[in-house]
Design a protein around this nucleic acid. Sequence first.
DNA 1: TGACATTGGTCAGAGTCTCTGACTACTTTG
DNA 2: CAAAGTAGTCAGAGACTCTGACCAATGTCA
Lengths: 146, 146
Amino acid sequence: MVAESELNTGVLLFLPYRALENRVFAALADAGFDDFTPAQARVMQRIGPDGTRLTELAEQAQITKQTAGFLVDQLEKAGYVTRVPDPTDRRARLVCGAAKAHAAKEVADAVVAEVEREWEEHLGKRRMKQLREALTLLREITDPWA
Amino acid sequence: MVAESELNTGVLLFLPYRALENRVFAALADAGFDDFTPAQARVMQRIGPDGTRLTELAEQAQITKQTAGFLVDQLEKAGYVTRVPDPTDRRARLVCGAAKAHAAKEVADAVVAEVEREWEEHLGKRRMKQLREALTLLREITDPWA
DNA sequence: TGACATTGGTCAGAGTCTCTGACTACTTTG
DNA sequence: CAAAGTAGTCAGAGACTCTGACCAATGTCA
């Protein structure tokens, strides 16, 4: 369990992922969205346009529903999300993104687009396309929610 | 900050990364290496063959040196690493992997190789090569330590 | 229909991870 | 040598995550 000279594919995937996440998080903070944490963001990211149940958020983020509940509480207090009753199941409530969340998403999307442009510039159009293609294909066997 | 239908490259990178990490961690636990946490593993991974300074571990893992020190303490107690004085600087100590860490690394490497085989099978030899090529190239602009 | 298992969610408590700030000891620089 | 920088630790606090126990609503099926 000690580093070796050659990098495995896992590290290779992680490095650009982290670089992107750092850029997005920094831009968000610059834009005034500095009142949520990375952990909260990872949950917020997974809220669908029509709201998403807590349990589903927990599964997709691979955390327990207790943890998800804890994080959603903070997001609710900070005004990023609201909880509304699920009309189809009286046990459940839907976590919905508030206006503040959508505003933050616009900033985040812009940065992601910018970084993707930079990557494409470095890799070239062809290789960038191949990268996305391979990753999309890989999703079939690595994403339990594909 | 709410999910949309199309996946950005960040998520695309993260999904296989997480899948791989989960597999490795599960295999390690199966093999009896269940006395360290993911956070500790992320530090341990970065120890070089001749030992690495705490500060350098912290930088590469993008955590503070205090946090790194905390995690190395746990790893030391569990017998995965030792701290030896750095002969070139009396302020510093080198964190070195112990036998137990090398044994764990063997297990981890085997699983990584297995997963990479599975991915290659799914993508085809050509696309897998393109994927690694693109990621390696991307490292130039996303890895501060490249 | 009515017992029983399942599912969505919460409460309580504990352990782990991470940070900021302040500090000591050693090294480098001029 | 004095000043500045670097390696690491200590102390304290906040954030994240888990396990276990629990309640309420839903689904299953004899």
